[in-house]
């Protein structure tokens, strides 16, 4: 974690709400870093209070507020809490602006398509399947959908979509019938997973292709030891 947006993303990854994070200007920090964790390579948030060095990127904004003499003056003594809270909300705003970085036309399109998938433009069943996915997957698949709208349906888009949704999956094309695919998913079948897979097959697999599914167990391939484990071979 190096920057404030890093910290916010890490908080989200740890299941913490952004509103729980409290930013504080650190007492001791390196002038060459925005983060001010005790350990420079820290990769997890230990508490909801995140100490940073806001002067690293935003000294033009904070130089007055963080000036050591500001709160030292007797007439400002009562405002320490106010200044701390103000600092926190401004950093929150800056982190929101940071997170809009890389916003392109394509990103707008992807987001709109995701919203329409969830709104049922592609049907109720598709909407239900998208709703059970996590946000990241929703965006990735909306991106693949946009690609498909741009360049047409292809096995390549289908493969990418399946590989994104099922990271351990393997896709084979039959040598005897090239319209037949063999799809090993590498996961246990659950209701939600089956729903997602059905959605992928219907949205990305061109007409005429069929896919045989292997969920947990791979079919045996002679000569490939990983696929020849006893009690873990699917019949094919």
């Amino acid at each position: 974690m190096n920057f404030i947006w890093d910290i916010v993303l890490q908080a989200e990854a740890q299941g913490m709400d952004k509103a729980e994070l409290l930013f504080q200007q650190a007492k001791e920090y390196s002038p060459y870093c925005e983060q001010a964790f005790p350990c420079i390579n820290q990769d997890r948030l230990e508490s909801t209070v995140a100490e940073i060095n806001a002067l690293y990127r935003f000294s033009h904004i904070f130089q007055e507020l963080l000036h050591p003499e500001l709160l030292a003056r007797p007439e400002n003594r009562d405002f320490a809490q106010c200044a701390a809270s103000f600092f926190d909300i401004v950093v929150h705003l800056l982190s929101e602006i940071d997170l809009k970085h890389g916003l392109t036309k394509r990103e707008y399109f992807v987001r709109q398509l995701r919203a329409e998938l969830l709104d049922g433009v592609y049907g109720r069943e598709a909407a239900a399947a998208v709703a059970v996915m996590d946000r990241k997957l929703q965006f990735s698949l909306a991106n693949e959908l946009l690609t498909q709208l741009q360049i047409g349906t292809s096995l390549r888009v289908f493969r990418r979509a399946v590989r994104t949704a099922f990271t351990g999956s393997l896709l084979y094309q039959s040598n005897y019938n090239n319209k037949e695919l063999l799809l090993y998913l590498g996961e246990k079948e659950t209701k939600e997973k089956a729903q997602i897979l059905q959605f992928l097959l219907e949205l990305f697999l061109p007409f005429g292709f069929s896919a045989r599914l292997f969920w947990e167990y791979h079919f045996g391939i002679i000569g490939v030891d990983a696929a020849m484990q006893p009690d873990a071979i699917a019949l094919f």
Binding site: Y122, G123, A126, Q148, L149, Q150, I151, G152, T153, F199, E202, L203, F204, L205, P206, F207
Partner: peptide
Amino acid sequence: QPIKTKLE
């Protein structure tokens, strides 16, 4: 682009 899948 031509339609090629069921959901489209």
